[in-house]
Design a binder for these strands. Structure first.
Lengths: 180, 180
DNA sequence: CAGTCCGTTTAGAATTCTCTAAACGCTGGC
DNA sequence: GCCAGCGTTTAGAGAATTCTAAACGGACTG
């Protein structure tokens, strides 16, 4: 016993849903295709082959292939094996906790750590320039800071570093991934 | 009494810091310029005029003007008035809590709400297609779902809606903005 | 009231990103 | 071993974004 889903509204909403998924990932700096493919698979309870994905979204298999790989790396979709079919099938990961924890977080935290390292290099550079204090200002257009301004700069850098620490800590906590 | 900051390392690190800021905002879907300008102002304790910003980053005043407006809309920088100078000066907002709460959150929550609305339209469409159940499947290539698959689809949609609710709730909570 | 100095707007250039078509390599079946 | 089907790679077309230069409008000044 099967039921057909072919009312106009369903088809329309499906397209809009897929597009909304694309916009979401685009706003996050990932491509539009990433969200579209995920949304499509999320709406499709059974696994889809690469070509079905490409056809559904009216894109080339090449595009679909690349996007599918990104999504798999993000743990957002799984490659599943269908007996008797040589093609690769894909299905959405429905546990968002897994996607966040295993797929998104590692990359985010790596970026965060790199930013924090940059802040610390900046602090070192600021401190090192201390020894050259009141050196003859050879370059007239160089930035010249008062003592208070340098103190303010140090304050800002410390504050930024502290923020990064707090964010990194909360992203690492199990509380968050349990929440999703 | 002033101290000069002109060691090679400081200049280098400053450029890298600015570039890192650009990469961060780019990864978040905002342009690179947004982060570069903010990073520059964050490293500069005194207010900068538009042209100084443009010159520092080697971009046109037009670009700087547009970016500066975006940043002001995000509450990430403030326009300040310098007595005796007709130009507009800008300084970084150093309280990240303000930036998140007043600048970023409203936009994020609006996007979230729009996504949630799309999910709900999808649920309605799915439910509405019920009445057409077992309609003669005029289009042979239409998706046909078993009863279990439709149940799974409903489960997924409810799950996605629930996730959006939870995220929206935590973003709205004062706990978060107090944390930053 | 003319001249200058700002910031903004806008049309178009330039760059970057994205997608595609075609060729390729691999695997399994005959 | 050869053919067919599948996914991937890649060079280049195409599209979208980003940046700029130039013109504009408003505001202060002499």
């Amino acid at each position: 016993m099967t039921s057909t889903l072919n009312s106009r509204s369903w088809t329309t909403e499906r397209r809009r849903f897929v597009e909304a998924g694309g916009n979401t990932t685009y706003a996050c700096g990932l491509g539009r295709m990433v969200g579209r493919v995920f949304a499509l698979l999320y709406l499709t309870p059974e696994p889809l082959a690469l070509e079905q994905i490409a056809e559904s979204l009216a894109v080339s298999k090449a595009s679909a292939s690349i996007v599918v790989r990104q999504l798999a790396a993000l743990h957002a979709i799984r490659r599943v094996w269908v007996p008797g079919d040589r093609r690769d099938f894909y299905e959405a990961e429905t546990d968002f906790g897994v996607i966040f924890r295993d797929g998104l977080m590692p990359g985010v935290r790596k970026k965060l750590q790199s930013a924090r390292a940059q802040i610390e290099r900046m602090m070192e550079a600021e401190a090192a320039s201390d020894v050259l204090e009141v050196s003859l200002s050879a370059a007239p257009d160089e930035a010249t800071l008062t003592r208070e301004q340098r103190a303010e700069l140090r304050r800002r850098l410390k504050n930024a570093r502290s923020l990064h620490s707090r964010i990194d800590r909360v992203l690492g906590s199990k509380l968050l991934s349990r929440f999703l």
